[in-house]
Design a protein around this nucleic acid. Structure first.
Length: 291
DNA sequence: TAGACGTGGGG
DNA sequence: TCCCCAAGTCT
């Protein structure tokens, strides 16, 4: 394996010149702003997050501001970012932070991990980016960069492995771990991309094991594709869009018109209610959740 | 642990 | 057009 110092210097120097100017990385960004950005960025591209993040920061500048709202307002202002359960969990986070942590986003990894919607990656990201903690941030970008540069493989395994964690820990610098983490992520996002990596622009191309091996294509089983058209997920999206657009309870008929298959529609609606994303009222009307 | 969970843009 | 995939988490 390459000398870690070599990797660090090359990637950090590249980041110095190529980092995007993102608001949650700005000097004035709060830990709350970082947390909100991390949740929004889960499976959602930066360009779509940007306007929604600004709206949220203006509307709910601190956890207590969101905590004071009904959960349905978080879902409404989530807009079309997708995976709206994230909005619900962020709202639950805001209430937990307000009620149990004095209104301050925790800085401790284990405490963050205990909050709803915060998993291994997001806990490390917040502890690292918002508080400068020394944690391995293993998102899809970092995992891809390491898979290629170190393991000579086009893609990392489906699930994060113990070997990947060991490698990320081993590469973590004693000082400046937070900047190193965000720099590797940025390299994966801008240069070492999934589809068409720009190796000509890569600061570590000369030591990249995958490139040196002739960029062998992914050997394992085909990666699981996401189906969408005609699925319950699409149906749920349609139904929730109706509830978001309305500012009060809507009659069942307003939901019935957006999806033809009645069996699937009922199943999807039940799912939304079970997930806490919708509420059924006594008069057979539906709305975003209040609690 | 594999599958559920939204949405839209680029190749 | 169709397929891939984008800072994951939860069960």
């Amino acid at each position: 394996m390459v000398e870690p110092h070599l990797l660090h210097n090359a990637v950090l120097s590249w980041y110095e010149d190529n980092a995007r100017d993102l608001p949650w990385r700005a000097a004035g960004a709060t830990p709350w702003g970082v947390l909100v950005s991390e949740i929004m960025l889960q499976q959602t591209p930066v360009v779509r997050v940007l306007p929604v993040w600004h709206e949220w920061m203006e509307r709910w500048p601190a956890p207590k501001d969101l905590a004071a709202e009904q959960p349905g307002e978080a879902v409404r202002h989530w807009g079309r970012l997708g995976y709206p359960r994230r909005a619900l969990r962020l709202h639950a986070c805001a209430r937990a932070i307000t009620d149990e942590h004095g209104g301050e986003v925790p800085s401790d990894h284990a405490t963050l991990l205990a909050l709803p919607g915060i998993g291994e990656y997001t806990a490390a990201a917040v502890a690292s980016f918002a508080y400068g903690g020394r944690h391995a941030v293993l998102d899809t970008n970092v995992r891809r960069v390491f898979a290629r540069a170190v393991r000579a493989e086009e893609y990392p395994p489906t699930a994060t492995s113990a070997a990947e964690r060991r490698l990320a820990e081993a590469l973590l610098p004693e000082l400046g771990a937070a900047r190193w983490g965000v720099a590797v992520m940025e390299l994966g996002a801008l240069v070492c991309t999934a589809r068409a990596p720009r190796c000509a622009d890569c600061p570590i191309a000369d030591v990249c094991a995958w490139r040196l091996a002739g960029k062998p294509p992914h050997a394992g089983p085909a990666r699981r594709g996401q189906t969408y058209a005609g699925t319950d997920r699409q149906c749920r999206g349609r139904l929730l869009a109706v509830l978001r657009a309305a500012h009060g309870p809507v009659p069942k008929a307003a939901l019935d018109v957006v999806w033809d298959d009645a069996v699937q529609r009922e199943r999807a609606l039940d799912g939304l209610i079970a997930d806490g994303l919708a509420e059924a009222l006594d008069d057979d009307t539906y709305r975003l959740p209040h609690a």
